[in-house]
Simulated scan of single mutants.
Amino acid sequence: MIAYLSGTARSVRADSVIIVAGGVGRLVTVTPAHASKVRDGMEVELHTDLVVREDSLTLYGFESADERSVFQILLTVSGVGPKLAMAVLAVLGADGLRAAVAGEDKKTLTSVPGIGAKGAARMLLELTGKLPAGGVGLPGTASTAAVAPGDQVVDALVGLGWKQAQAENAVADARAATPDAPVPALLKDALRTLGGRL
Rank of each mutant, 00 (worst) to 15 (best):
S11N: 12
S11A: 06
S11E: 10
V12N: 00
R13N: 15
R13D: 13
R13Q: 07
D15A: 10
V17D: 01
I18M: 00
A21D: 11
G23C: 09
G25C: 02
R26E: 02
L27D: 07
T29S: 12
V30S: 01
T31M: 05
T31N: 02
A33W: 05
A33K: 10
A33T: 08
H34M: 12
A35V: 05
A35Q: 04
S36V: 00
S36G: 11
S36R: 14
K37S: 10
V38A: 03
V38L: 12
D40V: 15
G41F: 15
G41I: 09
G41L: 11
E43Y: 13
V44M: 09
V44A: 13
V44S: 14
V44T: 14
E45Y: 12
E45W: 03
H47Y: 13
T48Q: 08
T48Y: 09
D49M: 01
D49I: 13
L50H: 01
V51H: 10
V52E: 03
R53S: 15
R53L: 08
E54S: 12
E54N: 09
E54F: 08
E54H: 14
D55W: 03
S56W: 03
S56A: 12
S56I: 04
L57A: 04
T58F: 00
T58Q: 07
L59D: 04
Y60T: 02
G61M: 04
G61N: 08
F62K: 03
E63M: 10
D66S: 14
D66A: 10
E67Q: 14
E67W: 13
V70Y: 00
V70I: 10
V70R: 06
V70P: 01
Q72T: 05
I73C: 07
L75H: 08
L75A: 02
T76L: 07
V77S: 06
V77M: 04
S78Y: 12
S78W: 09
V80W: 01
V80N: 09
G81I: 06
A87M: 05
G93S: 04
A94P: 01
A94G: 10
D95V: 09
D95G: 09
G96N: 03
L97P: 01
L97A: 03
L97S: 05
A99N: 12
A100Y: 05
V101Y: 06
A102I: 09
A102P: 09
E104Y: 09
E104T: 10
K107T: 15
K107R: 14
L109R: 01
L109N: 10
T110R: 11
S111Q: 10
V112Y: 09
P113W: 07
P113L: 10
G114S: 04
G114R: 05
I115M: 07
G116E: 15
G116M: 15
A117H: 11
K118P: 02
G119S: 07
G119Y: 06
A121V: 08
R122E: 07
M123V: 05
M123G: 08
L124S: 03
L124W: 13
E126D: 15
L127N: 02
L127C: 11
T128Q: 14
T128I: 11
T128C: 07
G129K: 13
G129Y: 11
K130A: 01
L131F: 08
L131N: 05
